[in-house]
Design a protein around this nucleic acid. Structure first.
Length: 470
RNA sequence: GGCCCCAUCGUCUAACGGUUAGGACGGGAGCUUUUCAAGCUCUAAAUCGGAGUUCGAUUCUCCGUGGGGUCACCA
């Protein structure tokens, strides 16, 4: 059994969308599971579309997700360099090998002439195939014309896909595609095949858009006398409505946007893994190691999957809850806030917030009462009972809690609850909670007293009493 | 249009050819409860249609329908 080698080979065109991230994840998981190698390779053969800064952005995105590569542009490796624009000599060597074997020839036409062929084929309602226009005499390739692959045998290709099983494509999928463009750069079709061969890639995870061009890759492998890798076709990630691939229009975001939006990388990894793959049992929460153990290409889904934000939130909340209190706080924006109080608030946030953005909003919103008293209204204080009765209850509670020293929520509850049960929970606890929080919605009064401390709680209750006596 | 791929609750999905078609998210109801969350319990909700093979089909075959992909000097 040869060692498993997988790769993620993005183009540096700006973003790192979730579809790419999932492809990378599956390739990484598969390599990890089999103790193999995961390679990061940059496919920058289209200089027109290249976006400055993409490569560090891609690497930062993958690193954030938790995917590490054994070989890549920054860490190097046995097959360096890992950026295609730095491997031009290699592609030229392969091109010359093909020319020598009669498997490649320079395209004698101008792009306008090819366009005429294409148009007439369209008019005649038949597929355009360049191989129907092969020149009779083959010129010497001087690098100014595109170099085309001469398909050795026109035939129907049938191959085994690790996910889909037997796949096939008719003869019309096979054509004399361009290997080297007139600008000297190789095409994707050529470069990725050469690199996968050179880097010893054994398993290629990719989207279903590559099914139709697989015969070209297979024909190229044949011409080079090399056994092709195993192909694993991943299902598309669909946008709202489930009809088209997730796009920016559907709110598809850059991977790092999820970091900014307060998601944990382990949550995104867990969610992405489940989008198109499913383990045997009913457990759905998986950390990276458990994912790698359970991952199998045979269990990858064939049909497309819709990106469900609600489920992602659910999974994110789960992973937020697994964080230690101090780790949790390290994800928060604590500027201008008492860190000790923030630490106290964590357990409340774990029950309420599904992202750290939400958690931060709550600290300044419904949990703001932990940091400062709010203005009380008499109307809300007396929502359950008359002013006189409410005042009496509150002063009684005051007497009950005054002797407490740094009590826990449970301790407060133990002494206050009997009184509340005696007088009526709503009548006692509502004004108490409101007096402490100044908000219609907040944590329970016992927890508030525990976090605020006895002195501050007493002060707030006294403020409420002052309002009641007015 | 040619070629290719796909099809189970709203969504993500499970189910050696034999299950009351299961789980999760979301929804609904209830419990808990001072409010808001959380938690717990219960619940509604699906095999695209038609043939065929078979004692028996979500599962295998064919046709249809629907959706998607691809036909570049983009990847």
């Amino acid at each position: 059994m040869t060692k498993v080698v997988t790769r993620f080979a993005p183009s540096p065109t700006g973003f790192m969308h979730v579809g790419g991230a999932r492809t990378a994840l599956y390739a990484w998981l598969y390599a990890k599971k089999h103790g193999g190698t995961f390679i990061l390779r940059i496919e920058d053969t289209d200089k027109e579309r290249e976006v400055e800064g993409s490569i560090p952005h891609i690497m930062e995105s993958l690193s954030w997700l938790g995917l590490t590569w054994n070989e890549g542009p920054d860490v190097g490796g046995a097959h360096a360099p890992y950026i295609q624009s730095e491997r031009l000599a290699l592609y030229k060597t392969y091109a010359e090998k093909l020319i020598a074997a009669g498997h490649a020839y320079p395209d004698p036409y101008t792009s306008e002439e090819v366009e005429v062929f294409r148009k007439s084929a369209e008019v005649e309602k038949r597929p355009f195939l360049f191989r129907n226009h092969r020149p009779e005499t083959v010129a010497v390739w001087d690098g100014t014309k595109p170099l085309r692959f001469k398909v050795p045998t026109i035939k129907r290709y049938v191959w085994q896909d690790a996910v889909r099983g037997e796949l096939s494509a008719g003869e019309e999928a096979l054509d004399d595609f361009i290997l080297i463009k007139s600008d000297g750069y190789p095409t994707y079709n050529f470069a990725h095949v050469v690199d996968d061969i050179e880097m010893g890639v054994t398993h290629v995870m990719r989207g279903e858009e590559f099914i139709s061009s697989t015969p070209k890759f297979l024909a190229l492998h044949e011409a080079l006398g090399v056994t092709p890798p195993v192909f694993a076709t991943l299902p598309p990630i669909l946008g709202e409505g489930g009809h088209k691939k997730l796009s920016k229009r559907d709110g598809a975001k850059d991977l790092l946007d999820y970091r900014a939006d307060g998601y944990l990388p382990q949550a995104l990894m867990n969610f992405l893994a489940l989008l198109g793959w499913h383990p045997t049992g009913t457990e759905e929460f998986f950390a990276a190691d458990a994912l790698a153990d359970a991952f199998e290409l045979e269990r990858v889904q064939k049909s497309g999957a819709m990106f469900d934000d609600e489920k992602l939130l659910h999974i994110n909340q789960h992973w937020m809850r697994t964080l230690s209190d101090s780790d949790f706080v390290s994800h928060m924006d604590t500027a201008g806030k008492d860190e000790a109080v923030v630490l106290h608030a964590v357990s409340l946030l774990k029950d309420r917030a599904k992202t750290f953005v939400e958690a931060n909003a709550m600290l300044s919103g419904e949990l703001a009462c932990l940091f400062a008293a709010s203005v009380l209204t008499k109307e809300l204080l007396v929502a359950k009972e008359s002013a006189d009765v409410t005042a009496e209850y509150l002063s009684q509670v005051l007497d009950i809690i005054r002797p407490l020293v740094a009590p826990s929520a449970e301790e407060v509850k133990a002494v206050v609850m009997p009184y509340a049960d005696d007088k009526g929970r709503a009548a006692v606890l509502w004004p108490l909670r409101y007096a402490l929080s100044g908000q219609e919605r907040s944590p329970d009064p016992f927890t508030l007293i525990a976090i605020l401390g006895v002195a501050e709680s007493v002060a707030r209750i006294e403020t409420a009493l002052g309002i009641l006596h007015k």
